Simulated assay, not measured.
Amino acid sequence: MQRPDADPPPRRGRPPQTRAQAEQVRARIVDATAEVFARAGSRGLSVAQIIDHAGLSRPTFYRYFANATEPLHVLLEVSNAELVGGIAAALEATGEGVELGIRLIDAYLDWARGHGVMLRPLFAELHDPASPVSAYRNAALDGIRENVSAKFTELGRTVPGPLDLDAALHVCEYVVYRISAASGPGGEPDPATVAEARLTMIRVVLATLGNTADFRYAMGLPGLFPAAPQDAAGAVTAGQEN
């Protein structure tokens, strides 16, 4: 029996292949799968399109994967690990309250930026039970809920209720979807749109997961909330002072 970590056996009529070479070919297939998925989604995946983008033969593809969905699972596993891991790292940093929420949101946005044009079809299939993306979304949300709850417990804060936490996560997800839908051909959204979306996400997370101390702190952050209207004398209009 061949050891799991052994180099792949040489094929008849072909030169021996090292483990490093095998990993390069495997990565080439996965990268090509990302290109096809970005253009056509999971329903547009086919071995023919993947090998065309990768510049490889069909036998070479089947040496590494049994079908077109397997390399997509590799992409989704990496995406999930980066999302949950990035948020976990943000929660481990020093600070709490509003700053903690802002770091969580920035980690989410950093993850989204890393997907480029692949982000749009990814979000388009999040809620489609027939898509493999859906199961990975549920797993990622479970991981985020666990990390957030653990951090609040560690800080001695009231752990958010399931509905509040899900509301915050789903709104952030929707906002990023809106960003991806409005992005240009290269997958890069307008920086002003991202900045506005970031403020929306911060306000939503503050409203669902924050406490009174967080709100007092947030009121001093420039640009987070619009200024209250003032009369000609410069006084805050009645009913708008809070």
Results as ranks from 00 to 15, higher is better:
Q2I: 04
G186P: 01
D31S: 07
A68S: 15
R198C: 12
P229E: 13
E77I: 03
A233Q: 11
A135K: 09
V117A: 14
R157Y: 08
A89Q: 13
A81L: 12
L209Q: 10
D190A: 09
E146R: 15
E125N: 05
G114M: 09
G220Q: 13
G143Y: 07
A48E: 13
S79Y: 00
I144T: 03
G55A: 08
T33Q: 02
M1D: 02
V159C: 02
R43Y: 06
F65M: 01
M1V: 06
I50T: 11
L206N: 01
A22D: 03
T60M: 10
E241K: 06
A182S: 12
R113F: 15
P16C: 03
T212A: 14
A227T: 12
V78F: 00
G41T: 07
Q49M: 07
P226G: 06
R178N: 12
T60D: 00
P59H: 02
R198Y: 11
E35S: 09
T158A: 15
P4S: 05
Q230N: 01
A93T: 12
M201I: 05
F152G: 04
P59M: 05
A66P: 01
R137C: 02
A124K: 06
A150I: 03
A135E: 11
A93R: 15
Q21E: 15
R28S: 12
T69W: 01
P226Q: 04
A197C: 06
L45Q: 12
A218H: 09
G143L: 08
F152M: 14
M219I: 01
R137V: 01
V36E: 09
V117M: 11
P226K: 02
A88Y: 05
A81D: 13
A235Q: 14
A130K: 11
L199C: 02
G85E: 10
F215M: 04
V159M: 03
E196Y: 09
A227I: 01
L91K: 03
F123C: 11
P59Y: 05
R216P: 00
M201C: 14
T237L: 15
V47S: 11
V84E: 06
I202M: 07
P160W: 03
G184Q: 13
N242L: 12
S57W: 05
E99L: 11
A88F: 03
R157V: 11
R28H: 02
A130M: 10
A235T: 06
C172M: 13
R14P: 00
S149D: 07
L221Y: 10
N147M: 08
T94R: 12
R203W: 03
A90Y: 05
Y136M: 10
Q24E: 12
T60C: 01
V78R: 15
I144A: 03
D166Y: 03
G156Q: 09
I102F: 04
A38Y: 09
A93C: 06
R28E: 08
G41D: 07
E154S: 05
G210Y: 04
A81Q: 14
A227Q: 14
T193C: 01
N67I: 01
Y62L: 11
T94A: 14
G210L: 02
Q49G: 14
E196W: 08
D214Y: 02
L163P: 00
S57G: 15
V25R: 10
G187I: 09
R216Y: 05
A38T: 02
L122H: 04
G116Y: 06
E125K: 01
I87G: 00
S42H: 12
P4Q: 04
A140H: 04
